[in-house]
Design a protein around this nucleic acid. Structure first.
Length: 470
RNA sequence: GGGGCCGUGGGGUAGCCUGGUGAUCCUGCGGCGUUCGGGACGCCGUGACCCGAGUUCAAAUCUCGGCGGCCCCA
């Protein structure tokens, strides 16, 4: 097996790793569409398992159609303006042209909200909280990249909620942010939380809060968004409810989403020159047992290796009985991000021990064989903590506070710039020349004063993040 | 939005400028044997010129178009 390109050549590394670790097959003959390999799909399954577990606490899972009639998609003015250039249209059924064109959903507000209008009658129907995990389509014209910029987003988890009052919607936004925090904490992925500037919010929203993580090359990746929609969509789609005293009132809505970019972040943030590094909880191979086979000793070694595998069967375990030499097996499973490796050879069989090592460390150590099952969980959690600290430190290194436009211009090439910015779109546009304004910093691993002089015009400004983005 | 580069076995490549050889090398994959504590070795086998049109006696190589990929600038 050939070596992977070093991670410092991030683009190359990412592309090769995705293919070689069998996450996505990038050879599908349509731009921007990729195939999930079985191995990649197992990562997706465990990551989305966590997301579903979190969502299921107070949302119901639903499924809405992928096709949206043009008449509904076009109702909300700002919304359609934001998406019209990237919508795929279904124009024909067989040979007949359709009377009303059908859009492949770029997102599902306009599929859901006409139905919510029928579902919501009274205050007793509120709040309504649902989510779905679906594919969405966007005709991307820039470079597409597996898991990051797609024409078919295959794994869009979108939640939609409806409330009686703006304050209730505000409260839901806070909860959604907390859910996403928990999700990314479990994946050991650090993030910035920003309030997107007015000109970059979700089309149709009152405001947008976004999670961004920092990739190895210093560009940021948006990995989650939370939108307070106010009553904008309720007014467009006529979603009203009857209050306890018989009045009719428009409802207030939120929506928030996470796509397979969370998996792109997982791979990019933790991976190393040898391949995938995945937290124990989501690795498709949580434990790999490697028997070290010597001529004449194969039987006993294999027997013990299988025993260990059997005792750990509540985890995702592989006992690698293939004919390769141990070294080749180590590299193979390191590429695939097996979290814990257990080696058993003739020596260990005699001692009743095994050699244990973790994917994120060079260290190897001996453990009594019987102790392994009770230690696994703890090792997994310790590994998650190590990964998180390492990722956090590397993110902190890439954030710099800048107090002049020259500094912004030079630093944004290598990472994230924090600087002060007033509310004017003009000043924002000036910064957008260097990268993208991510917005007002709400939460960050690096803290600076929240207010200062706008780096462009010198008026009162707030702490904002600027970065090159994916 | 503008510009540039590229498409060769499963992956990565040489060859293309200057048309003509049995299309190069690494890797992977299958088989056999000797091995096995960080990418073993030997032997055998497998497998490619993106698609279409054109120029030509002859096209991986030249021209045009399509599709796909990468990079730079705004």
């Amino acid at each position: 097996m050939e070596k992977l390109p070093p991670k410092k050549n991030f683009s190359e590394w990412y592309h090769e790793l995705i293919q070689r670790a069998e996450i996505m097959d990038v050879r599908y003959p349509v731009k921007g569409l990729y195939v999930w390999y079985p191995f990649g799909f197992r990562i997706r399954k465990s990551v989305y398992g966590i997301l579903r577990e979190i969502m299921d606490r107070e949302h119901e899972e639903v499924y809405f159609p992928a096709l949206i009639p043009e008449t509904e998609l076009g109702k909300e003015g700002e919304h359609i303006k934001g998406f019209e250039n990237e919508v795929y249209w279904v124009t024909h059924g067989g040979k007949d042209e359709l009377d009303v064109k059908l859009a492949l959903r770029p997102t599902s507000e306009t599929a859901m909200y006409p139905m919510f209008r029928l579902w919501i009658r009274s205050h007793a129907d509120l709040p309504l909280r649902v989510y779905q995990v679906v594919n969405t389509f966007r005709y991307e014209t820039k470079h597409t990249r597996p898991l990051i910029r797609l024409r078919e987003i295959t794994s869009f988890k979108e939640a939609h909620t409806i409330h009686a009052t703006f304050e209730d919607a505000e409260e839901q936004v806070r909860k959604a942010v907390a859910y996403y925090r928990e999700f990314y904490d479990r994946l050991a992925i650090p993030y910035l939380i920003c309030k997107r500037p007015e000109w970059d919010k979700f089309p149709g929203a009152v405001y947008t809060i976004a999670f961004d993580t920092v990739m190895p090359d210093g560009k940021t990746l948006q990995i989650g968004t939370v939108h307070n929609l106010g009553d904008n969509f309720a007014r467009t789609f006529d979603i009203t409810y009857e209050t306890p005293d018989g009045e009719h009132s428009f409802a207030y809505q939120t929506c928030y989403g996470i796509s397979e970019r969370c998996i792109a972040a997982l791979i990019s943030v933790h991976g190393d020159d040898l391949g995938l590094v995945l937290p124990f909880e989501v690795s498709p191979v949580q434990v790999v047992v490697i028997p070290v086979l010597y001529k004449g000793r194969e039987g006993e070694v294999l027997r013990v290796a299988r025993e260990i595998g059997e005792e750990l069967k509540k985890y995702r375990v592989v006992v690698d009985e293939s004919e390769e030499r141990p070294g080749a097996k180590y590299y193979r499973w390191e590429l695939r991000g097996a979290a814990v490796r257990i080696e058993v050879g003739p020596r260990e069989v005699e001692e009743g021990t095994a050699v244990v090592s973790f994917r994120d460390e060079k260290r190897k150590f001996k453990v009594e064989k019987e102790k392994i099952p009770e230690m696994i969980e703890q090792w997994g959690e310790e590994m998650r903590e190590r990964l998180y600290i390492r990722a956090l430190n590397s993110m902190k290194e890439k954030i710099v506070l800048c107090e002049s436009l020259d500094e912004v211009e030079s630093h944004v090439r290598n990472g994230v710039v924090f600087t002060y910015l007033c509310d004017s779109e003009r000043c924002g546009e000036r910064l957008d020349e260097f990268g993208s304004v991510l917005g007002e910093v709400i939460e960050s691993p690096v803290s600076f004063e929240g207010e200062g002089r706008c780096v462009v015009c010198g008026k009162e400004g707030k702490l904002n993040a600027v970065a090159r983005t994916y």
